[in-house]
Design a protein around this nucleic acid. Sequence first.
DNA 1: AGACTAATCCCGT
DNA 2: ACGGGATTAGTCT
Length: 834
Amino acid sequence: MSFGGFLDNNFGGGSARNLSDIPHSKGTTTNQNNNNRIMPSGAISHHSLMTPTLAKPMFNSPGLSLALQTNIDGQGEHLNRSMGENNNFEVNGLRRSREEEHESRSGSDNMDGASGDDEQDAADNPPRKKRYHRHTPQQIQELESLFKECPHPDEKQRLELSKRLCLETRQVKFWFQNRRTQMKTQLERHENLLLRQENDKLRAENMSIREAMRNPMCSNCGGPAIIGDISVEEQHLWIENARLKDELDRVCALAGKFLGRPLSSMTNSIASQLPNSSLELGVGSNGNGFGGMSNVSSTLPLVSSDFGIGGMSSPLAMVSHSTRPTASMVTGFDRSMERSMFLELALSAMDELVKMAQTNEPLWIRSLEGGREIMNHEEHLRTFTPCIGLRSNGFVSEASRETGMVIINSLALVETLMDANRWAEMFSSMIATTSTTEVISNGINGTRNGALQLMHAELQVLSPLVPVREVNFLRFCKQHAEGVWAVVDVSIDTIREISGAHNFVNCRRLPSGCVVQDMPNGYSKVTWVEHAEYEESQVHQLYRPLLSSGMGFGAQRWVATLQRQCECLAILMSSAAPSRDHSAITGGGRRSMLKLAQRMTKNFCAGVCASTVHKWNKLNPGNVDEDVRVMTRKSVDDPGEPPGVVLSAATSVWLPVSPKRVFDFLRDERLRSEWDILSNGGPMQEMAHIAKGQDHGNCVSLLRASAMNSNQSSMLILQETCIDAAGSLVVYAPVDIPAMHVVMNGGDSAYVALLPSGFAIVPDGPGSRGIQNGGDTTNSGNNGDEARVSGSLLTVAFQILVNSLPTAKLTVESVETVNNLISCTVQKIKAALH
DNA sequence: AGACTAATCCCGT
DNA sequence: ACGGGATTAGTCT
């Protein structure tokens, strides 16, 4: 028996038997079949070169036919398929013969043992061991093609197929079952491969970081650097290792044959991308399954090997994308080197921030008057290694620190800071524009701990006399204890030369940011440190004291703004915020109005500061006052603005009056006629009022100017006022009455066209600390200051539509008109306040 | 040894 | 009873 078996295997005796047998058995085979079958067995070794038609007949020898089958598949299923269809009637003949073959075979298979049969088989049949046989290529082909259409055929389809292929229904069922599991394992294997690669990559990255740590280099000059603190290195490795461990766990989970259900986010994403046909992948189109793919993958460098190779259908490639949205996949060693430098910088910046926030004497010294803290530069230099290099020529330092209680919890604040949009919204008056350039790490274990990202921002002080600060920085978040977080920013211009026109930076942020600690009462204690170097010559003399006091770009302003905004959010959140007005606006109406006001104020800021939010063209002052900056832009296709040529005029003046008094004067609708030409010479009325804070100065309101004569419809003015310890704002814009009705009923405010004008008020220097203490409930304590408050800096800005045709040329007249308007307004205010 | 595949076993629904 | 996962048993490379 066994001897016979060997003989068969070696000489292909089984096939020979079938070749001779079948044609004779019923004589139904066609010529072609015969021809095919007579193929000399010597050709078999060249099967890989054969056309499918030639290859087809080889089906009789199980082993060879298998090899053939994979090859055929590799050449594309279309050929196979069409061949199958074309040869339909001939195949019928084949089927017959196969039927017999099958019958005889299944006889020996299933009847398992009548020795007579066995003897018979031994005679002219290969005494194959029971149970082993393979379906013929034709059968498999048909099965495959159905599988591709429907990997899960129902009873009827299976029955039909079994009849057609002369297989038992159970066989068909098994085949499909097996095929499905096969597909699954292939998919899993591939997935595993991707994870493994990822893991390798992280490992390599870790190695490179270790290397970088062992051999630290100064990011500025390229020379050797000393990492002062060993804990920095520890933290560093700790973070990386946590990430690696995470990755490893994922791989292990998959590798551990626990493949039943998707267990990682990755598997989920596969499932979602291949909704109902995950098994279809690569079956017929690529008979090798993923074999070819994995070969390539393992020989190419880790990176990018999994993208679209060999016409591989893209879903899987996309998966590898989506698992790591960071740019890490597409870059090589350089990038990983850069990242490790970023991480290093972030860690030392974090270290510095925390020390700056927590240390007092001698790093911070209280100034004699005002109680403001002043950083001791010598001490700073002694304590910290400069992490972004030395100060440029002509730059001056500004450092400030402020601590305050804010009604927000640490997690929410951290989330806000790490999300560019939310950050910009929270500090809308300070941030002209911002974006996240690159996410380097999202944080560990689903928290923001360890999150690291590259950001770009334009920071502003609301005056044409203070240039916008453009900064590129790293933002790094770390949890220091339960309920204690820190977020640090540090400029990266020295590491990565930002390409293009923005090469010149007018400001560098040294480690700055905040340490936030949850308090039991829902508040948190926020300590803000702001440390920057900037070119002072660009700043007008008037504003220099303000900036150096920290009220301009410094910690005081960040904290004050944060306090004001969080209070506003808290008030809006609590449903118990009845509008104090009589005109009962609905909740939706309030929301729409606030949104509109928010947009208005943002646009106002963008007009005061020539930030890149709008593409302003500056006019060179010919017939314009030297101190008034005039800019124009075209407004097209923005439903939030009237279309046409928009002119912005802004100026800043010093007033010998306290900021609080200026603010109260400007926001008082009854005194409007003293400066506002829109008032028609009379007082205005407040039609609606939405409180945004405890201070009555923080609100959005709707004003109505009295009509000049009875047939003139009165005009509505939307106004937002804000005040906090660092400054105040009065922004307003005339609005269309019907449009405002829509908004007040909760409609979309995006289509309300408006152009804002208004005022920004700040104290004129460090002497006047805070402007919010006019006997208000929020801040009290240093009323004694009141006398010492010296004066204010008032910025006046108008945006006016000078022509409703965007293409129109700007006329000298309109520039002069605006110029006159602004200087008249300033004069009137001065006069009224004196 | 490991891959492949037809067929079983066994379990949950 | 059925589908599906785990497993097994031949076979091939």
